[in-house]
């Protein structure tokens, strides 16, 4: 913990022990993943750097979402998934610890479709902290406000915190989902095609938000949308048939890919 930077509207900037950015946050080596007999990932290796946005691109079924979901062990929910290889976060192998809960508080996730619970906006954002045992009303109020500000949605919802979260528009819901993830004070946020269910204007808002969040969080985003990858990410990994074909600075991937297949994909020749 301790890398959280919380910006408040009144200009007060609370910064705790800011780490230098740019170091390796997630280190993946030799990752093989099987669904039963079917292999979905082949010897995936990837270094994800701290406080950067890393985009995972590739055609449907290429394994990018599967890979993303192995970073917070959401694949554990599926019967018959087998994983070999190492995923190290802050030099700790996440498949060797038994504390999935701690892992998931450190690695937040935003899903493809907004998946707010059928509760009020406030209760949705306060859900995670409450489950961690935070009971103080004052503390919860602060967390909720900070998180909603962090997700750039505070002004839109501050007057209706106690109303159902499901009454919001899709774009607003997705930003509350991001707020809900931020409320856990994670260090890494995984986003699985976070804008695929949103209209262009909402998409733009979420993209702006991602660019802003980069200074505080390490973000890994799966996207179908090449322009989005180009707009928001620092590095891009191209997946094909369960393998990483190419991983480089985003600029390089889009302007001078080394592999023919990458070029075919980013120029829209298949996918």
């Amino acid at each position: 913990m301790g890398t959280t930077v919380i910006e408040r509207k009144d200009g007060v900037r609370k910064s705790q022990m800011k780490q230098q950015s740019g170091g390796t946050k997630i280190n993946v080596k030799d990752l093989d993943l099987f669904y039963g007999d079917k292999q979905a990932l082949y010897k995936v290796a990837l270094d994800i750097h701290e406080k950067e946005v890393t985009a995972l691109i590739g055609p449907s079924g290429c394994g990018k979402s599967t890979f993303l979901r192995s970073l917070n062990r959401m694949n554990d929910l599926i019967d018959g998934v087998k994983i070999t290889g190492d995923i190290m976060i802050d030099n700790e192998n996440i498949y060797e610890t038994n504390d999935v809960i701690k892992l998931r508080t450190k690695v937040g996730m935003v899903f493809q479709k907004p998946n707010l619970f059928p509760m009020s906006i406030y209760d949705n954002v306060a859900y995670g902290p409450r489950m961690q045992g935070i009971k103080s009303k004052k503390e919860l109020n602060e967390i909720v406000e900070e998180s909603l500000r962090g997700a750039a949605i505070w002004d839109e919802v501050k007057d209706r915190l106690k109303t159902s979260a499901l009454g919001l528009s899709g774009g607003q819901q997705q930003r509350v989902c991001i707020a809900r993830a931020i409320a856990m004070k994670p260090e890494i946020i995984l986003m699985d095609e976070p804008t695929s269910a949103l209209d262009p204007i909402s998409t733009l808002k979420v993209e702006e938000l991602i660019a802003n969040m980069k200074k505080d969080y390490t973000i890994v985003i799966v996207t179908h949308n090449m322009q989005q990858a180009a707009r928001v990410s620092d590095k891009t990994a191209f997946f094909l048939n369960g393998e990483i074909i190419e991983y480089d600075e985003t600029n390089n991937i889009f302007s001078m890919p080394k592999d023919q297949r990458t070029e075919d994909y980013v120029t829209g020749r298949f996918g």
């Binding site: 959401m74 701690k102 508080t105 937040g108 996730m109 899903f111 998946n115 995670g128 489950m131 856990m184």
Partner: peptide
């Protein structure tokens, strides 16, 4: 109950029981 509720909650670091 949508699967996304389960995933959403678990991804926030809650236990299965919670």
């Amino acid at each position: 109950v949508p699967q996304s509720y389960r995933e959403g909650s678990l991804a926030l670091g809650t236990t299965k029981l919670q």
